[in-house]
Design a protein around this nucleic acid. Structure first.
Length: 424
RNA sequence: GGCCCCAUCGUCUAACGGUUAGGACGAGAGCUUUUCAAGCUCUAAACCGGGGUUCGAUUCCCCGUGGGGUCACCA
């Protein structure tokens, strides 16, 4: 089928995968997949000085980590596509729409190629913004190639999009003013115009384009901070687009199903880390205990996962909490810290709890609670519950003592109470 | 500065001429098995301004203001 939708994600490997690029990739994928098409990945590395293998790797790994499907173009690097470009540049010169001008600064001794600007108005339809008109006169006879076989970005884009059969160009709004010059070249080459859609930029809190000076912008940083790819996808999709209802938590498949370009916003959207954290917590809670443990990467007691799920907003927070569960025998001072009783009282209470729990068959939270809580209420909750919390956790900040006891299990619980009693 | 784009709570957004302008994040207050979180409940919080069009404008048009993007032999 010739009318199959083909979008593309063409990063230039001059930096690590940026959160904004990731969203552009996501929108391209969502649109293509929703329309039954595909998204092609290629690298725009015509700037040899700044392009690095390392960045290329990072970008691919990032997209894979996010689970955004793509198809790698044949010959995905522009730096390897010289043979293709060589077919087109002379053609442009022969047809009189381009000409060789002054000597190039690249030391090749060859001449730079300039486009013979027809100096006209160019109007194109942007799916998101409607008709946009530019007067290209101010562009003058712009340079399109460093020399007869090395195109500059704009020319390479036009040729690649044509060669790869790209039907829809979905890119950041910062490219909107590049569009007319690309259309000029594409007309000179006799190519068909793709559909253009310029999506709003992701903004920093100061409303300017999000960039490195604003802090964390590379996907890797979010990954290492313990964010889930599902959460990042979900959050990014809702920056500048929304399906209309009041639901906010979605899976990638759901997003694919609902996505449409006409619900994409025109204005930029400020990136809010707090909301991302909230999405992350939501997606973390959606994981099964087994999957959660898997994501944490270590050997984790599955009994601890529900506790983590409830409290941790990121995997890193979960890790930190896990450390907090590491028990160190509490000091006498800590045991008495907030208990409204003296050492003798605390000792009495702990011994009583030990006796109660020792007789308990089922060590479920509810049963422990049923047994201990009435006693705590009768004796003064603080004077019973505080020593119990500290005895079990070794800390003054912890989940409630009943949950703690249940998670720890009977044996450990009794052992820790025993240890505490000895201190009093 | 030229050109282009944009404009609803602090932030992400709903609304497609008629609503008490809704939701979410965050904030504040309260509740909970007296901690820290989480959770639950409640509260505060917005249509940039001025003209039109219309019986009626947040919504359509124009102007202004504000913000942003872009002006390379970078992408």
């Amino acid at each position: 089928m010739s009318d199959k939708v083909i979008t593309r994600f063409p990063p230039s490997p001059t930096g690590y995968l940026h959160i904004g690029s990731a969203r552009t990739a996501l929108f391209n994928y969502l649109f293509a997949k929703h329309s039954g098409g595909k998204m092609i990945l290629r690298f725009e590395d015509t700037d040899k000085e700044r392009s690095k293998q390392e960045f290329e790797q990072d970008i691919i790994e990032g997209i894979k980590w996010l689970n955004i499907p793509y198809e790698l173009a044949d010959n995905p690097r522009q730096s390897d596509r010289g043979e293709i470009y060589k077919k087109y540049i002379p053609k442009l010169i022969e047809s009189g729409t381009a000409y060789e001008a002054e000597e190039a600064k690249d030391g090749s001794g060859r001449k730079v190629v300039r486009f013979k600007n027809p100096n006209k108005q160019v109007t194109f339809t942007d799916t998101i913004r409607g008709e946009v008109t530019f007067d290209t006169t101010e562009l003058q006879d712009f340079v399109i190639a460093k020399n007869i076989e090395e195109p500059l970005y704009h020319l390479a884009v036009v040729i690649d999009d044509h060669e790869m059969g790209v039907t829809h160009v979905i890119r950041g709004e910062d490219h909107i003013s590049n569009t007319p010059r690309q259309i000029l070249m594409l007309e000179a080459l006799g190519f068909t115009r793709p559909v253009y859609a310029h999506i709003p930029l992701i903004l920093a809190p100061d409303k300017s384009k999000l960039s490195k000076r604003h802090g964390a912008v590379s996907l890797t940083e979010y990954r290492s901070k313990g964010f889930l790819p599902e959460a990042i996808i979900n959050y990014l999709a809702l920056l500048g687009w929304n399906p209309g209802g009041e639901q906010e938590v979605f899976t990638l498949d759901q997003l694919v199903h609902m996505f449409s370009l006409d619900r994409v916003h025109k204005g930029g959207a400020v990136f809010d880390i707090e909301k991302l954290k909230w999405f992350n917590h939501e997606h973390l809670k959606l994981l099964s205990d087994e999957k959660y443990a898997e994501r944490l990467g270590g050997e984790v007691d599955l009994k601890l996962i529900p506790l983590l799920k409830e409290r941790a907003k990121t995997l890193v927070e979960a890790h930190d909490m896990l450390k907090e569960f590491e028990y160190a025998p509490p000091t006498r001072d800590l045991l008495l810290k907030s208990a409204k009783t003296d050492a003798a009282g605390a000792k009495k209470h702990l011994e009583h709890i030990r006796t109660l729990l020792n007789a308990l068959e089922s060590f479920m939270k509810e049963d422990i609670e049923k047994l201990v809580f009435p006693y705590a209420t009768a004796e003064g909750r603080a004077s019973v519950l505080w020593p119990m919390r500290v005895a079990l956790s070794g800390r003054d900040k912890s989940p409630d003592p009943f949950t703690l006891a249940a998670v720890l299990g009977k044996e450990t619980t009794l052992k820790r109470i025993e240890e505490a009693v000895k201190k009093l």
